[in-house]
Computed example of a mutant assay.
Amino acid sequence: MRIIKTSLVCLFVVLASSCKSARSIVASGKVDSNVSAKQLIKENKKQDANFKTLQAKVKIDIIEDLKETSYTVNLRMEKDKTIWISATLGLARAMITPDRVQFYDKINNQYFDGDYQLLSNLLGVDLNYDKVQSLLIGEPLFDLKDNNYVISINENSYILQPKNQSALLELFLLFNPSHFKMDSQQLLQPSKKRFLQIDYLGYQDVDKEILPQNIKIIAVEDREELNVVLEYKSVSVNQEVRFPFKIPSGFEEIILANAK
């Protein structure tokens, strides 16, 4: 199970945030009871990220079994093509592309080279590169045009949910009334006791891109819970980036026997 959670962390540790020109966004907007689901979806679509490349330092706090561990990694992204993560001194490195998930760990001399199937099974969601990227840059995990949604409100957010929720997967999407980016994505798979919640705790303006500043991820399966908190620093967009990645020779391949 620990190896599986390592894969989750590698997948989740990706995103963008503040740079010298970045500024935090104060969410001062109020919900409007007259906004329709169609209008909300349209406004959210206007906020889709337009950057070509991104690089940043990301501080990661992982909380598991009441133990907290902190890391700082370098993150580079070419939108729609590559997500690259490197730990200090290159002790661990990951590269995610539309058809592969790869990472290696020099401390344990291990590597993984596979597809998205394991993570899809673990989270109860059919994952691919587009869904992962959307999740991590504050965009809906699912294409909102692919379903009929109903809207409701609470004090601080608009709430979208499918008009007909699936018995296998319940979905709740919360949107911020200030900039129409996401406040939270919540996915529940009752039959398998799985729950995934991604909370976007703050946003910032980076060269006219509205990007998350802090994210909290909660992944629950039965009685096991993993919390990952991300803080993004020193981000820049639309600069030239490289993605050096080569699995060292002699490393042992991680075989995930419980992939279904």
Rank of each mutant, 00 (worst) to 15 (best):
K192F: 11
E253P: 02
V228R: 00
D32F: 05
F51N: 01
K192Y: 09
T97Y: 06
N258L: 10
K106R: 15
L11P: 04
K246W: 07
G250Q: 10
K5A: 11
I254G: 01
S33D: 13
Q133A: 06
D222L: 11
S178F: 02
N176G: 03
D105E: 12
I255Q: 11
I255C: 00
K106Q: 12
A219N: 05
D115V: 04
N164E: 15
Q55W: 05
N176D: 15
I83P: 01
S18P: 00
E221F: 12
L173R: 04
V237T: 14
S191Y: 12
D222C: 01
N147F: 09
S234P: 02
V206W: 00
D146Y: 07
W84D: 00
N258T: 10
K20N: 13
I215G: 02
R93F: 02
D183M: 03
A219D: 03
L119A: 13
I218T: 13
R93C: 08
D32C: 03
K193C: 01
T6Q: 15
S157H: 13
I41R: 04
L15K: 06
P190Q: 07
A219H: 06
D205H: 06
L188P: 01
E253Y: 07
I62Y: 07
T6W: 12
D32V: 06
S120W: 07
T53S: 12
K145M: 10
S28T: 15
K67M: 12
M1F: 14
L173T: 05
Q189I: 08
